[in-house]
Design a protein around this nucleic acid. Structure first.
Lengths: 145, 145
DNA sequence: CGATAATTAATCGTGCGCGATATAAAACGT
DNA sequence: ACGTTTTATATCGCGCACGATTAATTATCG
């Protein structure tokens, strides 16, 4: 019985399927905003701090430019952001919210509450679990670095 | 300060990034077996119980046939499984491990230990966290259903 | 100053992951 | 038995996500 090659005992499988489950809860909420889930994360990051570079967003979201560049182009096509090369350093692309992108925040305000409700946990418990998962992420990232 | 539209406070963002972090830890281990992470999960499920149907695997892995069919075809091309229509019910496709697929299990035995080590937590703690994340997943799945 | 190295985005190829749809087989109702 | 409905898998289009590579710009060093 020492066979630990069981799916249901894998922390990785729990995280993997929880991630998909979250996506399914978000889907209808984000459809109303015309955003996918990764696009929503990028917008949240820009609402926190406008005018970030592609690389800066990548560091915050843990994504590569090969993922972000097409995603940001789609956000630009949707009219939520503008992408422009920095004048000081022509290598850098700065991403700025459009008026419409700024306005979108109001529509997104209620989303975290919906997710919290769907989780069936109170705020304190969610925050604790969130911190634990972040700690797991940091430990894993450290082990690869 | 009641603005809760902050990335770092999102449980979803924690899960999302933890999932990517896990993938990065798995990548080099699975490269040695010639598997991707979702392919590995399918193999684990088949090692637990051989001869599952596409639908059965989908229920266990929380994946649609649109995801599994191409994935299983790639596993078949790699020589790890065979896909054959059931004789009793021609709608059903049964997935069976090949000899090589059975042998692959030996190479995969050590992987969970590597992940546990990378997480920097002891087995008890990991199991507890795993159960909490599964509970979150179940609550979320219930809310959409 | 000029060659080289480093940095930043973008591009390309592969593999998910899903929703919508299609196709085929089985089950069902009359 | 036959048309209808349900079920199981497959197909298609789109959007991630990443590794490897490329292109352009900036920094560095002799």
């Amino acid at each position: 019985m020492q066979d630990q090659l069981k799916l249901d005992s894998f922390i990785c499988f729990a995280v993997y399927t929880a991630s998909h489950a979250l996506n399914r809860v978000y889907k209808p909420l984000l459809d109303a905003l015309g955003l996918t889930y990764p696009q929503y994360l990028a917008m949240v990051s820009l609402w926190e701090q406008d005018g970030q570079t592609v690389g800066g967003l990548g560091e915050k979201l843990f994504l590569e430019s090969s993922t972000l560049t097409p995603l940001l182009k789609r956000l630009e096509t949707a009219g939520y952001v503008r992408r422009e090369r920095s004048r000081e350093d022509e290598r850098v692309v700065v991403v700025r919210l459009s008026e419409e992108g700024i306005r979108l925040k109001e529509k997104a305000i209620g989303i975290p509450g919906c997710i919290a409700a769907a989780s069936g946990r109170d705020a304190v418990d969610l925050t604790r679990l969130q911190a634990e998962i972040v700690a797991l992420r940091e430990a894993l990232n450290k082990s690869v670095a």
